[in-house]
């Protein structure tokens, strides 16, 4: 059944697959995780701020994003970002936005909803005595968050945050719907050009599988180590 397969096509396209495709995927994953974490933490702080209106807005944002399929959100932002850019820069027409920027904005906004739930759980897991001790020492609310609560919440939630980042790594493949050459997009381009769908998709699957497996093994190790330290 493998007689008419040509796995050499993989070797020939390796530089393109990894230098172009995988670097796009990893860059998008890394920056989206970072941006999503920062933005998500802000949303979590809004929800826990005690200001009703602020909390409601943040809660609605999270529920809204989590109700929508990522594919739809990708389409939304792909068409919306040029208009947002126009609005921000005051240009006279919708500005042209590159594929990378557009997907980055999408994933940051989308992942922020998920990261915010993780950070919220993390913040809530810190005992009330910690912020109390911080304010007894004279730290302001923001200092107590910055130096006492958030570092602990982040550390406690690190395994969950990393697991979510692995999911994000897999989800970035959906930029395929915009014909953007991320890793899967690059593989698919070669597959269609050379008529080698079977080889290329099997290879892409294997690469995603190995990376995700190794990463989640790492997270499990980390989790075990954290469990011992506590």
């Amino acid at each position: 059944m493998f007689d008419n397969l040509d796995f050499d096509v993989i070797r020939r396209s390796l530089p393109y697959l990894f230098l172009d495709g995988m670097s796009f995927t990893l860059m998008l994953t890394g920056l989206s995780a970072l941006g999503g974490l920062i933005f998500g933490t802000l949303i979590a702080l809004m929800r826990l701020s005690g200001y009703k209106l602020l909390g409601r807005i943040a809660g609605l944002y999270v529920d809204f994003m989590r109700s929508l399929p990522l594919v739809l959100v990708i389409f939304w932002f792909y068409f919306l970002v040029p208009y947002i850019g126009q609005w921000l820069t005051g240009a006279s027409r919708p500005i042209r936005v590159g594929a990378f920027t557009s997907s980055l904005v999408t994933f940051i906004m989308f992942e922020a909803a998920y990261f915010s739930e993780i950070m919220r759980a993390g913040i809530q897991s810190i005992s009330k005595g910690q912020p109390a001790a911080a304010s007894a020492l004279g730290l302001t609310y923001s200092q107590s968050m910055r130096y006492v609560v958030l570092p602990q919440a982040f550390r406690n939630m690190l395994p969950v945050l990393l697991t979510q980042t692995i999911v994000l790594f897999q989800d970035t493949s959906l930029v395929y719907v915009l014909s953007i050459p991320d890793f899967l997009g690059a593989a698919s381009k070669v597959a269609q050009r050379d008529g080698r769908l079977v080889e290329m998709y099997l290879f892409a699957a294997a690469v995603y599988f190995v990376i995700s497996c190794v990463a989640s093994y790492g997270v499990r190790r980390l989790q075990a180590r954290i469990a011992i330290v506590r």
């Binding site: 998709y201 892409a204 699957a205 995603y208 995700s212």
Partner: peptide
């Protein structure tokens, strides 16, 4: 097996491969 591959890739495997 099912968790460590993007859903999109899995669909391609079923559909094309």
């Amino acid at each position: 097996f099912f968790r460590n591959m993007p859903l999109l890739v899995q669909l391609f495997l079923w559909f094309f491969v």
